[in-house]
Amino acid sequence: GHYRIRINGREFEIRGISEEEIRHLEEALRNGADEKILKEIVDRLRG
C-alpha cells in the first residue's frame, strides 16, 4: 500500500504498509494513542 497522511499541516507519504496495519493504527487512534502511533509509524519507516 501507498498512502498520504497529513500531520500538523505537513503531508507525508507512507509506503509499504498493509491494510491490516492500517486497521490496527485506526483502532489505536480511536483509543487515543496519538503520540505512540506516530512513533510506531516513524520507527517503521526508519526500517
Rank of each mutant, 00 (worst) to 15 (best):
E35K: 05
L38W: 07
F12A: 00
E40P: 02
V42S: 03
N8E: 06
E21N: 11
E21I: 05
R6C: 07
N8I: 01
I7K: 00
R6M: 15
R46V: 15
R15H: 15
E40C: 03
R30A: 13
V42C: 06
D34R: 03
F12E: 02
L29Y: 06
I14E: 00
H2W: 12
I22H: 03
G16N: 14
E35Y: 11
E20N: 10
R23C: 04
L38P: 01
I22G: 04
I7H: 02
E26A: 06
E27P: 01
K36I: 10
I5E: 00
D43A: 09
E26Y: 07
G32K: 05
R10L: 13
E26K: 07
I5H: 00
H24D: 13
E13K: 03
G9K: 02
E35H: 09
K39A: 12
E11Q: 04
E35I: 08
G16I: 10
G1T: 09
A33G: 06
I17D: 02
E19P: 13
A28D: 03
R23Y: 12
R44S: 12
G16W: 08
E40F: 08
I37Y: 12
E11L: 13
F12P: 00
D43F: 03
L25H: 00
N31L: 09
I22L: 07
E27L: 11
R10P: 00
E20G: 10
K36W: 06
H2M: 10
I7T: 00
R30P: 02
I41V: 07
I41R: 01
S18M: 04
L29D: 01
A33L: 12
E27N: 11
E26G: 04
H24N: 12
I37Q: 14
R46A: 15
E20I: 08
G16F: 10
R44V: 10
S18V: 04
A28F: 10
E19T: 13
K36V: 09
I5G: 02
Y3S: 01
R15F: 15
I22Y: 04
K39L: 15
E11D: 13
D43R: 09
D43S: 05
G1A: 05
R6W: 15
N31F: 09
E20R: 05
E20A: 11
R10N: 09
I37D: 09
S18C: 06
G47M: 07
L25K: 00
H2L: 09
G1W: 04
R44I: 09
D43G: 03
V42A: 03
I22N: 01
E26D: 11
D34M: 08
I14Q: 00
N8T: 01
R4W: 13
R23I: 12
L45F: 13
V42E: 04
I5C: 09
V42R: 03
N31W: 09
I14V: 07
L45M: 07
N8P: 00
V42N: 02
E35R: 04
R46W: 14
E13P: 01
Y3L: 05
G9I: 01
E35D: 12
F12D: 00
E26R: 04
R46L: 15
K36N: 13
H2A: 14
G32L: 08
L45V: 07
I37R: 07
E26N: 07
I22A: 07
I37H: 08
A33Y: 06
E21T: 04
E19W: 08
G9Y: 01
G32A: 06
E27R: 07
G1D: 13
F12R: 00
E27A: 12
I22R: 07
E13H: 10
R6A: 11
F12W: 13
E27W: 11
R10Q: 13
G16A: 05
H2Y: 14
R10G: 03
G9P: 00
N31K: 11
R44Q: 15
E13Q: 04
R46H: 14
K36M: 09
Y3K: 02
R30V: 08
E19V: 12
K39N: 11
E40Q: 06
I22P: 00
H24A: 11
G32P: 03
I14R: 00
I37S: 11
G32V: 06
K39D: 04
D34S: 14
E40H: 04
H2Q: 06
E13M: 09
L25P: 00
I5T: 01
E26T: 07
E13C: 10
E11M: 09
R44C: 13
I17Y: 03
R44P: 02
K39Q: 15
E13I: 14
V42W: 08
A33R: 05
K36Y: 12
V42H: 04
E11A: 03
R30M: 10
I7G: 00
A33D: 08
I14D: 00
L29C: 04
N31T: 13
R4C: 15
R15D: 08
G47S: 09
S18F: 03
G32F: 08
D34P: 09
Y3P: 01
F12Y: 15
I37L: 10
E27I: 11
E19A: 13
G9D: 05
E11K: 01
V42F: 11
I41Y: 05
E40W: 14
Y3C: 06
E13V: 15
I14G: 00
E13F: 13
G9C: 06
L29S: 04
E27H: 12
E35F: 10
G1E: 10
L25V: 05
L38Y: 04
G1H: 09
R23L: 13
L38N: 01
N8K: 03
H2P: 09
F12T: 02
A33Q: 06
G16T: 06
K39R: 10
I41L: 12
G1F: 13
G1V: 08
E40N: 06
E19G: 10
R44Y: 13
E21S: 09
V42M: 08
I37F: 12
Y3F: 12
D34N: 04
R44T: 10
I22Q: 06
I7M: 02
A33M: 10
D43C: 13
S18Y: 03
G1S: 09
I17A: 15
K36T: 12
E11V: 15
I37V: 14
R15E: 10
L45R: 01
R15Q: 13
D34A: 10
E26Q: 08
R6N: 15
N8C: 05
H24Q: 14
K39V: 08
I5W: 02
R4E: 04
E35S: 09
E40T: 07
G32D: 04
H24K: 12
R44K: 12
A33N: 07
I17F: 03
R4S: 10
E20D: 06
E19I: 11
A28E: 06
R10H: 15
R15A: 11
R4G: 02
I37T: 14
N8Q: 06
N31E: 12
R23H: 11
E20V: 08
R15K: 13
R6G: 02
